[in-house]
Design a protein around this nucleic acid. Structure first.
Lengths: 133, 133
DNA sequence: CTCTACCTTAACGTTAAGGTAGAGATTCGG
DNA sequence: CCGAATCTCTACCTTAACGTTAAGGTAGAG
């Protein structure tokens, strides 16, 4: 799949997708002979992970780290992974999980503050408009 | 009030507060003879407005615009404000109100996506840990 | 005084992304 | 098979909103 269609499906801009490639965050699985980026469904799935994580305020570097952790846990056959490394990966995954929960909570407070602000604004606008009569 | 206390009360960094001063977004009401920024309660209130708006993704410029609109609507005596200008200000305020509602909605979808992501992560971590036994 | 905590400006760095230009690749109608 | 219309490429420039570091000035307690 070409980059344009990936952009349409993920809601990310072409520029952003190229940026993620440059950083090594989500590399296209292949290139056409002419040099066009070619993405697979799995690549799109990785982009969607990023899209969902982003509101939580993780840096691109952190998201790349998480992707590489899950890649290694999923794609290595269980036997091929030394116990020590597996433990370490699971520990890091756990820290991500905790951070995610914390940031979700932070996002909820932000949202409620924002809604409070929206309500204030609406009330004030209403008052001022009413005063016009 | 000095900048440090303002930072403590608003939860903004010193750098951020100075940045807002540099941009003319929230100017300290005075300076000490030695040059320290001196903030009033009203200044802090302005900073809190920004703090609440920020999660909605408004630019600092837009927030400055909103602050100046409400300032003019509040601080000018009703008579001193020409009807035409007042109309214009109210119209702009209305656009802000609409944008705020839209962005609140967007924030809610982002939050739900993030929570979905958090749930996924938790489920996957649980599975992997269980496999360890 | 002098010490300490707090404050100042100035300048450069960072992160994440958008803009632009000019060249090359693909594709589609004829 | 060919030319036009799209699409994509790389490379570089720009922006927003701060963070960081350096080098120092200030307020007030002792």
């Amino acid at each position: 799949m070409h980059i344009g269609q990936v952009a349409a499906r993920t809601g990310l801009s072409l520029r952003t997708i190229r940026h993620y490639d440059e950083l090594g965050l989500v590399r296209p699985s292949a290139r056409s002979q002419g040099g066009f980026r070619l993405y697979t469904e799995a690549d799109v799935a990785r982009l969607m992970v990023i899209r969902r994580m982003k509101p939580l305020g993780f840096t691109l570097e952190e998201m790349g780290e998480l992707l590489s952790i899950t890649d290694r846990l999923d794609n290595s056959s269980a036997a091929a992974l030394e116990t020590a490394e597996r433990e370490q990966l699971l520990a890091r995954l756990g820290r991500f999980e905790q951070a995610t929960r914390e940031r979700c909570a932070a996002l909820r407070t932000q949202l409620s503050r924002a809604e409070e602000f929206a309500a204030d604004l609406q009330r004030r606008a209403g008052q001022l408009t009413a005063g016009t009569s």
